[in-house]
Design a protein around this nucleic acid. Structure first.
Lengths: 337, 337
DNA sequence: ATAATATCTGAAAACGTTATTAATATCGTT
DNA sequence: AACGATATTAATAACGTTTTCAGATATTAT
């Protein structure tokens, strides 16, 4: 284990003072070519790496961004992480990842931890619902936040959200207009999360437009979970007025739904049509491929990162709420050829 | 933006000296109950958070781990990230994520960056092949490394790897012994990566055991990629001696393969059998569900984290190479009922 | 009562960097 | 040749913590 090389060592090697080395390495002006060369050479020779905690202590900036998500193995969130990471990598900032495992307590701790690590900003996909805790935490710190995916009641924060209402609306309208479906069920997220609420709103809006009654029995809340969606599908298919189509509001619930259909050898789209909100690689590899909406997760990640950086740099202006829309991706599971 | 509260502020508030506050907050001995209470109260009142760059500068430890992977959106890697994150979270360490996008140059930069950030250790899933650059970089730094997924020629490093040979072997033996298949093709990773090489080795070993000739035409290298696997599947199915079964060596290539089969409406397992190496959520939701091996990615992540921590703490002992094995998960795509 | 010991507290230094300020060298102009 | 302006360098302080180390106080033993 070789002892760390510091500016002091480089300075001695190059025969100059410490600040001069610092100036060279930070590409500042007011240093002669000769010295510049000497210093660079010495730094290279000694294999110098700056001590970043000293730097950030002095500069009062860490170049670190916090990213707090429920689950990195969720297709949706890992894509957002990619978008955020990619953006900040180009800007010379690092990403610290916090995986809350869908646990509100862990989420709270993660926020506190991130703050105490002096991250410059936080991208947060919260699972918090009506709970005011997170909101007041956010407001009590000076650190900028961008919230993705879910909207909660909190001031002075930017939002990057999916256009849940219109996405749902488009999917359901397709089933109605093109396939003449009227008996359309949905496997839903919880309504106390904005994404669940809005997706349901879009679903209802599409039905109401053709005076199709909204049957409460057709709305199954599966909390974005595979297992619950499996069960929900079972219930839907055992109804006497079995639906003609099922709309899954996320990829996990699609998986649960399809598992049930496979187990019972129920044919898609002959026996029942399926549509889902999120397009991931495997969605198009299904048999049949599933009709869905374009992917927006990467775009959401990049946009969130962009907003956060503006806010960090102090030129964010008014707080924004950005909705990212998506067009239909029509495949076969809805009955299209 | 409220100015940061420091030990100094807390000390003044509590009417004690700075070191005393430090001692209280770090739960050290030699401080009276009275003072302890006063300080804690003051810290809470002022909402004190330690300045972590100062702390790590003084303590010469950062509590930060670097995690370098090719792609966080890959099912395999995101699970490893989860395993690593979960382990280190419990140990009070943070995870900085580097996504190299399968680019060797970015990977090199990521390593250097991680080192200069003084991470205490690095979990690396390298895409490096015969290239000696990464190896010599690793050896030149004092920072502990654990390499996952891929093995390269490098000293003084721990490895956590899948038991690629036996996994492949089990899958192919199942096709041979249970289904009597002899014409078995594979869509493979590149052979200059250990995981590709070893998986191919297991595949051949299984064939040779029954004196089944290894046809080079049946081995298609698709570099773990969806698109290339799509093309490979096309080629395989247009051969005059079309195979009875295809073995996909990772989930991405499975997706590409299935996309082609769906496009051409080729039935699994009636027209062709399919097996794959990795089990992910969607693999069991396919129609039919795909026969595969148990998931080991989470275990790999946790194990890698464990080894790295031992190494950081200096009680790692001899360098290890750990192989994690997995049993078959038999579903319907191989022809089983 | 005194000495010895255990317990508590504060002053000062150090970690490695950058910013400020001051000092020196260089140059062109008169 | 002397002056001021400018370019280059060095000395020093500061960022917020923890770690000596020494001093102070309380406790116990003699």
């Amino acid at each position: 284990m070789n002892k760390n090389i510091t500016l002091k060592d480089v300075a001695r090697e190059a025969g100059v003072s410490i600040p001069t080395v610092s100036r060279v390495l930070n590409d500042e002006k007011f240093v002669s070519e000769l010295v510049r060369e000497k210093v660079k050479e010495a730094a290279k020779k000694l294999n110098y790496h700056p001590e970043w905690s000293a730097r950030s202590l002095r500069l009062r900036k860490t170049d670190i961004i916090g990213m707090i998500i429920p689950s990195v193995t969720d297709y949706f969130f890992s894509s957002i992480v990619l978008g955020v990471e990619r953006y900040f990598r180009r800007k010379g900032k690092e990403l610290i990842l916090f995986n809350t495992s869908n646990d509100e307590v862990i989420e709270e701790k993660a926020i506190k931890l991130a703050i105490s690590k002096r991250v410059e900003g936080i991208v947060l996909a919260t699972i918090c619902k009506n709970n005011k805790v997170i909101g007041s935490m956010i407001e009590s710190f000076g650190t900028p936040f961008v919230l993705v995916d879910n909207k909660i009641e909190v001031e002075k924060v930017d939002f990057v959200l999916a256009d849940d209402i219109n996405g749902s609306y488009k999917l359901i309208r397709h089933l109605i207009e093109v396939h003449g479906n009227r008996e359309i069920a949905c496997i839903s997220g919880p309504f106390d999360e904005s994404s669940g609420f809005d997706k349901l709103y879009g679903y209802k809006k599409a039905l109401v437009e053709d005076d199709i009654p909204v049957k409460e029995d057709y709305i199954k809340v599966a909390h974005w979970k595979k297992n619950e969606a499996y069960e929900a599908t079972r219930e839907l298919l055992s109804m006497k007025d079995r639906p003609e189509a099922i709309y899954c509001m996320n990829a996990n619930m699609l998986i649960g739904c399809l598992r049930y259909l496979n187990d019972k050898e129920i044919k898609v789209p002959d026996d029942i049509s399926i549509v889902t909100f999120d397009d991931y690689d495997f969605v198009s590899a299904m048999n049949p491929p599933i009709t869905t909406l374009e992917r927006i997760d990467l775009e959401m990640g990049e946009k969130a990162a962009e907003l956060l950086l503006e806010r960090i740099n102090g030129d964010g202006g008014d707080y924004k709420e950005i909705r990212i829309g998506a067009d239909l991706v029509i495949r076969k599971s809805c009955g299209c050829k």
